[in-house]
Write a protein that binds this DNA or RNA. Structure first.
Length: 261
DNA sequence: ATGTCCACTAGGAGTGGA
């Protein structure tokens, strides 16, 4: 089974791109973020025709998360919960579904802007709330996956410039603390688990030719419980889908692909 | 190079967010 996380930066703007990905890479479950669509505006028909069911928690203009499930692996996936209790003013950023015998959570962590900005404190609080949510609601002894755009660089290997970014947004101890809590709660970073020494980024700024200069960050993460870790065959980041395809503009994030037995 | 892309409001280009 192939499980993916991908911040698409507008599902409306990226629809053809995403359908191309489903066709080309044949994933079974895709956690998506930054839909930028209200649920009533989601293009369900296009995904149904592509053989997928989409479970979404969206809002107008910003944020929005979802899980796409291939109908042949589970014709009746279910939404278990939406939203992060106590943090609703931050927008639609969390959805948990039950699909193909797995608990799958798609998360879009607030960006935070800069460490001096009030949004940074709210981001750190949201991350703490996420760890609380995992502790209360997700089962470390089950088949559990938590994937999404964390807007946090887990370690020095995950940034193109560890020296220049010391203490900078995405790189602070306060943001990394909640990721350590996830580990303590039994969830492991599957990419790093399978590729201990590999530098591979999942996000590059649209500006300044960052992609071609290899100035990226690994901020899109897939966490799995112990039983998932034991089933993982390979984890990779699909740089090809950060490139223009047939003149179409990509998201600023690349899909992270996890293959499990 | 604060260099791009997206949604929204508006009915053209500016604003806010990332």
């Amino acid at each position: 089974m192939r499980i993916v996380t991908w911040n698409v930066n507008s599902m409306a703007a990226r629809l053809d791109f995403v359908l191309d990905f489903l066709q080309t890479r044949s994933p079974d479950i895709v956690c998506v973020q930054e839909l930028k669509l209200p649920d009533e505006g989601f293009p369900h028909l296009a995904f149904e025709q592509a053989g997928f069911r989409a479970l979404t928690y969206g809002q107008a203009q910003w944020n929005g998360v979802g899980v796409l499930v291939r109908k042949s692996v589970d014709p009746e996936p279910l939404i278990v919960s939406t939203g992060l209790p106590g943090h609703e003013p931050m927008g639609s950023r969390l959805i948990t579904v039950k699909a193909a015998g797995l608990s799958v959570t798609s998360a879009y962590v607030p960006n935070g802007k800069t460490v001096a900005h009030p949004d940074y404190k709210a981001k750190v609080a949201w991350l703490g709330g996420l760890a609380d949510f995992v502790e209360k609601n997700l089962d470390p002894n089950g088949h559990t996956i938590l994937a999404g755009d964390f807007n946090v660089v887990p370690g020095d290997l995950d940034t193109w410039d560890p020296v220049g970014h010391v203490g900078a947004i995405f790189h602070t101890d306060a943001e990394r603390g909640p990721l350590e809590r996830l580990r303590a709660l039994g969830l492991q970073d599957l990419f790093r688990e399978k590729n201990p020494d590999l530098q591979s980024f999942s996000w590059w700024d649209y500006r300044a030719g960052a992609f071609h200069k290899k100035q990226g960050l690994r901020i899109d993460l897939v966490y799995g419980s112990k039983s998932v870790v034991s089933r993982v065959r390979e984890v990779s980041i699909d740089r090809d889908f950060r490139k223009k395809r047939e003149g179409r503009i990509p998201s600023d994030h690349a899909p992270v692909i996890v293959d499990i037995d």
